[in-house]
């Protein structure tokens, strides 16, 4: 089962439809009790602070940590990946889920903000999430905050903009993508298909 967390994230419907398009039967869950054994998707559009607050109101943070410990496969999309980190300049007083060490930053002025549109992925390591996806493929981004490129063990691909940033992360059973696979046509669908098949 693919469990998609509904915490009022704006792109919920598109994410659900993309999984259905791929033949999966995703289940939308609004509280941990509704979870059915399987994978977890954290979609997301909007503010880091609002997203964390909405997850807390629905008692998800502890549940997600437990599931992560049990080895459940989990993927965060857009703000959904940012909240897997420790903190963000978008909401300095809010603590993230802290699966990964790093602080999310706002793009520096100079380039246009938000970083909006199709940009290329630059892979640095092979990963099953990117199976059948060519290095340099275009995916759709829409964000004003980014995960800084850091020397670390979790970065799978990055992207070049006014600041280079981490676009795909993975460590053990935790995955995340900064772009919107549900809106990235064939490339995005391939990535979601890979997640289904992991």
């Amino acid at each position: 089962m693919i469990n998609i967390i509904d915490y009022e994230g704006g792109n919920l419907f598109s994410v659900v439809k993309a999984f259905e398009f791929l033949g999966a039967e995703p289940k939308v869950i609004t509280r941990p009790e509704e979870y059915e054994a399987g994978k977890i998707v954290i979609p997301g559009v909007g503010d880091f602070g609002d997203a964390m607050r909405a997850l807390q109101e629905r008692n998800f943070p502890l549940f997600l940590h437990e599931k992560a410990q049990e080895g459940v496969l989990l993927i965060g999309i857009c703000v959904g990946v940012q909240i897997l980190f420790q903190s963000s300049e978008e909401a300095p007083d809010t603590k993230g889920l802290s699966f990964f060490r790093n602080a999310v930053k706002r793009f520096s002025p100079g380039g246009k903000i938000p970083h909006m549109g199709w940009n290329t992925l630059d892979f640095h390591s092979e990963n099953p999430l990117l199976y059948n996806v060519e290095n340099g493929s275009y995916v759709y981004f829409a964000h004003s905050y980014y995960i800084p490129v850091a020397s670390n063990d979790y970065e799978i691909a990055h992207c070049h903009y006014s600041d280079s940033f981490t676009a795909v992360v993975n460590r053990d059973n935790i995955y995340g993508v900064q772009f919107h696979p549900e809106k990235s046509q064939k490339t995005g669908l391939q990535i979601l298909k890979n997640f289904i098949e992991l």
């Binding site: 704006g10 559009v45 503010d47 703000v79 964000h143 004003s144």
Partner: peptide, 8 residues
């Protein structure tokens, strides 16, 4: 913008 982010 506050509710959904500027990108929306």
């Amino acid at each position: 913008a506050r509710a959904f982010g500027s990108q929306c």
